[in-house]
C-alpha cells in the first residue's frame, strides 16, 4: 500500500515536472561555447598538416578539433584552396593539455602532422 502511494506520488511529481517544463516553454539550456577566464594559462603550438583532400578540409578539421574543449583556437595560414602543407597555430589551455597531446589530437584528424620548423 505504502509502495503504491509512493509510486503514485512519484508519478504525480514527474507529471508536474513535465507540465511545468512544458508550460514554461523554455528548453533546457543547451551546451554552448563559453569564455574561459583570461588568467587560465594558454600555450601555442605551430604545426604543418596535410589534411584529407576534400572541398572544405580546413573546416572539417576545425570542427573535429574543437570538440575538445581544451583547444581554444586554431589559426590558419593563407593557403586557402589547398589541403596539404597547411600551417596552423593551435592555442590551447596549458594547464589541461600538454603539447604532445595536442599533436596526438591533430594527428587523429590530419593525414600527417609535424611541428613547424622541425624537418620531416
Amino acid at each position: 500500500m505504502r509502495t503504491r502511494r509512493a509510486l503514485c506520488c512519484l508519478a504525480v511529481l514527474l507529471a508536474m515536472n513535465g507540465c511545468a517544463a512544458r508550460a514554461s516553454g523554455a528548453p533546457a539550456v543547451p551546451g554552448r561555447d563559453r569564455p574561459v577566464p583570461s588568467d587560465v594559462p594558454r600555450a601555442e603550438l605551430e604545426l604543418i598538416v596535410d589534411l584529407e583532400p576534400e572541398a572544405r578540409c580546413e573546416e572539417s578539421f576545425d570542427l573535429g578539433l574543437y570538440r575538445d574543449a581544451r583547444i581554444e583556437l586554431v589559426s590558419w595560414d593563407d593557403k586557402l584552396r589547398t589541403c596539404s602543407g597547411r600551417g596552423i597555430t593551435v592555442r590551447y589551455y596549458a594547464s589541461k593539455l600538454r603539447s604532445e597531446e595536442v599533436i596526438a589530437l591533430v594527428a587523429k584528424l590530419a593525414r600527417t602532422a609535424r611541428v613547424a620548423g622541425v624537418p620531416q
Partner: peptide, 17 residues
C-alpha cells in the same frame, strides 16, 4: 574576418541546440 570564421566553427562544434 577569417578569425570570426574560425570562432564560428568553434561555436558550431560545441553548440548543443
Amino acid at each position: 574576418d577569417r578569425r570570426v570564421t574560425w570562432l564560428l566553427r568553434r561555436a558550431l562544434a560545441r553548440e548543443g541546440s
